[in-house]
Design a protein around this nucleic acid. Sequence first.
DNA 1: AAGAATCTCGCATGAACATGCGGTGGCAGG
DNA 2: CCTGCCACCGCATGTTCATGCGAGATTCTT
Lengths: 221, 221
Amino acid sequence: MSKDQIVGKDRPLCVAVVDDDRVTREGLRLIINSTPGYRCEHVFDSVEAGVVGLGSDPPDVLLLDVRLPGMDGSQGVRLFRERYPDLKVLMLTNYAEDDTVFESICNGACGYLLKKTPPAKLLDAVSEAACGGAPMSPQIAARVLEVFRKSKPASKVGHNLTPHEVRLLGLLSEGHSYQRVADGLSVTINTIRHHIRSIYEKLHVHSKSEAVSKALKHGIL
Amino acid sequence: MSKDQIVGKDRPLCVAVVDDDRVTREGLRLIINSTPGYRCEHVFDSVEAGVVGLGSDPPDVLLLDVRLPGMDGSQGVRLFRERYPDLKVLMLTNYAEDDTVFESICNGACGYLLKKTPPAKLLDAVSEAACGGAPMSPQIAARVLEVFRKSKPASKVGHNLTPHEVRLLGLLSEGHSYQRVADGLSVTINTIRHHIRSIYEKLHVHSKSEAVSKALKHGIL
DNA sequence: AAGAATCTCGCATGAACATGCGGTGGCAGG
DNA sequence: CCTGCCACCGCATGTTCATGCGAGATTCTT
């Protein structure tokens, strides 16, 4: 574990917490401060308080609750990341089903933990985040993978298309005309037309845009 | 931890291993069998050997090496999943940089671990996988998130398009002609033309197919 | 009340496309 | 050897599209 690269050095790993629940907040602070190599100096009850409270001395890692009064954590992560580009933000949530998972990730969160994560694993996750990793509770990771899979669904299935036809389709999707494609591939425009015909038959479409749409949605491109 | 839901019950968690390196293979078997609640009865040195060797009694979890002689693990995972739909496949790899990560995931792997993962964490991951989680080494998770972010980049940003224009674009991507869209929306074809013009300007494209392509890639549709 | 944005509609012209028909040659498998 | 699949080439017809120029209506902001 690359954990040792940080923990155990002269400087302790600095963690801040944003959570509207006082018990959780202080509990985390206690856990962190009672572990050698970790330090928690700042806790806040909202994103708004956090962005001003951190000042010019940001921590290494921020534990950020998802559900907060005022600005949501899933939105807030963007604020923090804009102000402190090196800050690693770990989201905390009670429910793996929460759809804000994806929003948070797109906004720059580097990890996502369930609040029921035991202290030892939580601290593990903190140091892994500090090292550039992306610790996630397995339930949450499962949801991410699910979406990930859907985004690249086919990948070689239903693929009657020949490699040539795929390449052609790719060029068309970039907005090239038949003539441009023909020139690019050093063939005649008539050849292009022929291939397009085959593509249309195989994809059961009748226009360039429909072909492109189908190809993209089915992961052919 | 939902681990307790499986481990500790009457039936031990059954694990199989596919790895071409004998030391790794037997090492894993030893680790697993020397831990209460886990059982490893089958180890194989290739995907091919695994798919026939498992027979009609598949394990709960399969640890599958990525790099293998013959069929790659990243491809093999599909085979295993087709034959045993309930089987959870955890990929093992030496390098987090490996691009087969994504291929494996799309092919049905439920998790991805670095081989240097310590035994305790590995067994943890196994039981988490068995419970439907998706354990991933943080370095690998970081790569997944990176790709994930890129795949949903805009989603509400750069969205100059008006709702009408978006709807129009959607219809066009389905292969409808201007006239059909016009009829569908009860407007003239000239109106459609005008909107298309605006869309082209905003997306900086010059053809239907390019517009559809850009819209799909940027998550506008 | 002025201005911006959006939606509506019109016309004209050249370019691009969809689809019909035809043909040659190569290479794999039955 | 023949049949199918693929890549290549040609032509002709009618349809659709891209883009130039206009204009009037609504709604929301300033």
